[in-house]
């Protein structure tokens, strides 16, 4: 099963804060520990550890890209059908009503980088759009002096779907950075903000998230699924500052 680690799990690992990182339960570790504690493997690092019940939240099954889901705070589809069928009698009409209550899970091929707070350059190696490329030889870096002593609030803004204002659903953020000593400017602390308009207002979702010193793809879960048109990653501290 997939779990989201909470702040309380951080004490188990001296490398950094585990809050928000996703982990998978490990059957073997589960057997060896008292029933209330759970063995997990952290997705970002492959480290296994045993966590107390208050140090994680259970996550639902991953939703495939593009799959339509009812809004997070909506009643279940079964419930909506049961309530509306005696009122409108037409299944087609209920399907139509339900279509307004559904959003697709984000599909990465539809995501675009709209803009960034600044950029060190805008070329083949360095641009906000490069953060959507699988090529590890490209990156985005904020402008020189944008982050004095490695502390600031630099951001990259993404639109989740091609149509302006169209919303999608997501719960996980994944990020790749170069490992030290190659990545002293890599983000170490960041958070997620969402909006339905590129100009905001942006609403912060979830706590500060911390990267580990690994060049693997790292993964965090937000506290709940998020439904929005735009996502902004706000980077507040680099590896050198930590």
């Amino acid at each position: 099963a997939l779990v989201r680690l909470r702040g309380a799990a951080s004490a188990h690992n001296a490398q950094g804060r585990l809050e928000g990182h996703t982990a998978e339960t490990v059957a073997g570790a589960l057997d060896r520990t008292p029933s209330e504690r759970v063995g997990v493997r952290v997705v970002s690092t492959d480290a296994t550890m045993v966590v107390e019940p208050h140090a994680f939240d259970m996550l639902g099954a991953r939703v495939p890209p593009g799959e339509m889901r009812l809004l997070h705070r909506c009643a279940s589809e079964r419930f909506v059908r049961r309530v509306f069928l005696p009122l409108v009698h037409h299944v087609e009409l209920i399907d139509h009503i339900l279509s307004f209550l559904k959003l697709p899970q984000v599909t990465m091929s539809e995501v675009t980088a709209v803009k960034a707070s600044s950029s060190a350059a805008n070329d083949r190696q360095c641009s906000a759009a490069n953060t959507l490329s699988a090529d590890d030889g490209t990156w985005w870096l904020s402008a020189p002096d944008s982050c004095p002593n490695g502390v600031g609030a630099e951001w990259v803004l993404y639109r989740l779907r091609p149509a302006v204002g169209a919303r999608a659903r997501f719960q996980y953020v994944q990020m790749k950075i170069p490992k030290l000593p190659y990545g002293p400017l890599s983000v170490r602390v960041f958070h997620v903000e969402v909006a339905d308009d590129e100009s905001g207002p942006f609403v912060r979702v979830g706590p500060d998230l911390t990267t580990f010193n690994t060049d693997r793809m790292q993964e965090w879960a937000l506290p709940t699924p998020v439904e929005c048109a735009c996502v902004r990653l706000v980077l507040t501290k680099n590896a050198a500052a930590c």
């Binding site: 953060t131 002096d145 982050c147 002593n149 790749k176 170069p178 680099n238």
Partner: peptide, 14 residues
């Protein structure tokens, strides 16, 4: 100074 910018290689949402 050298440590005055911040960045990353790649991002994903799921």
């Amino acid at each position: 100074s050298e440590a005055s910018c911040i960045g990353f290689l790649r991002v994903g949402f799921a």
